[in-house]
Write a protein that binds this DNA or RNA. Structure first.
Length: 286
DNA sequence: AAAATGACCCTCCTTAGACT
DNA sequence: AGTCTAAGGAGGGTCATTTT
């Protein structure tokens, strides 16, 4: 749910950014880079021109939020409930620093990096405690493209050539290292502990049985035609996105390789490898 | 009639063991 | 140790049969 909230926030910001002229900007999403000390940092939205770079941290937080410039924290008030978040301003400034180092390391000339914290939820009320010029970094999603246009007016000098600009974007994509989230390791669970079988969407996790194209729950007699899809999605999320015919058989409690074959076909699962080396890929289910 | 299943067949990957 | 070869077997495709 946390991830979904973040994702929805990013979607709404992207909508606003889509009004910008395509050719003038390179925009990269969820860019995850390694800094010079081997740690990773992730930029929600990276926007570049030959004149400046904007890095955007997107927060999808509802209710009333308070930026506390003195203690560097973000407080969310939702009714009577108060919750503190890591200060996004400090975070985006840290990203700014790391990106500067990164650009230096790859011998790019100095180029202004303009950090922004975007509040994607339009109904969120923003307040502040204390004064700071950092306030200018905070903006609402509806306003972000006007800010970008404004940067265009302020930063008029090209710091890198168009050729270097293209090179930079290509390098960023090449150096992007997507986070590998290992659920099993994080929760210290062994593969064998995972309950396999197709779960009934209606009741307990007793494996469903396949009967002529349908999944029947032996417990509540619920019938589903698509229950295997969520099972395979679980597999992709928990164990991995590559699986063999036999692997699917074991996970879905099927005895026939033909059924697996049919299911894979009906889902248009991409596959690599020939014959018994065939591997199905579940990436699209995530 | 349409869809799903399972037996059968062919392909070719994997593996063990012989050979260099 | 590395390469070659043959046997075994897993996988996909086809098609007759079964089920819905």
């Amino acid at each position: 749910m946390k991830r979904r909230a973040g994702y929805n926030g990013e979607k709404s910001v992207n909508y606003h950014l889509s009004f910008l002229e395509d050719k003038k900007y390179h925009i990269l999403h969820d860019l995850r880079l390694e800094n010079i000390r081997g740690q990773h940092f992730q930029i929600d939205t990276f926007l570049s021109t030959p004149k400046f770079i904007t890095i955007i941290d997107i927060k999808n937080i509802s209710g009333t939020i308070l930026f506390d410039h003195h203690f560097h924290q973000l407080i969310q008030k939702n009714g009577d409930i108060e919750r503190a978040y890591q200060d996004p301003i400090s975070q985006v400034k840290r990203h700014q620093l790391q990106l500067k180092e990164w650009l230096n390391h790859y011998k790019f000339p100095d180029i202004p990096i303009l950090p922004r914290v975007v509040i994607s939820n339009s109904s969120t009320i923003i307040k502040e405690i204390g004064n700071s010029k950092d306030s200018q970094m905070i903006t609402k999603a509806v306003h972000i493209n006007f800010e970008i246009s404004n940067f265009d007016k302020i930063y008029t000098k090209e710091k890198i050539t168009v050729k270097e600009w293209t090179k930079l974007s290509k390098l960023l994509i090449k150096k992007h290292t997507p986070e590998e989230y290992n659920v099993l390791e994080n929760f210290n669970i062994h593969k064998n502990e995972i309950l396999t079988g197709v779960h009934c969407p209606n009741c307990s996790p007793i494996p469903m049985e396949r009967i002529y194209g349908k999944w029947l729950c032996p417990s509540c007699h619920y019938i589903s035609r698509t229950a295997h899809m969520s099972a395979l999605r679980d597999y992709a999320l928990i164990i991995g996105t590559s699986i063999t015919n036999q692997g699917i058989r074991q996970f879905l409690h099927l005895s026939s390789k033909n059924i697996v074959n049919n299911i894979a076909k009906s889902m248009n699962l991409p596959h690599t490898g020939v014959g018994k080396a065939r591997i199905y890929h579940l990436q699209q289910l995530l």
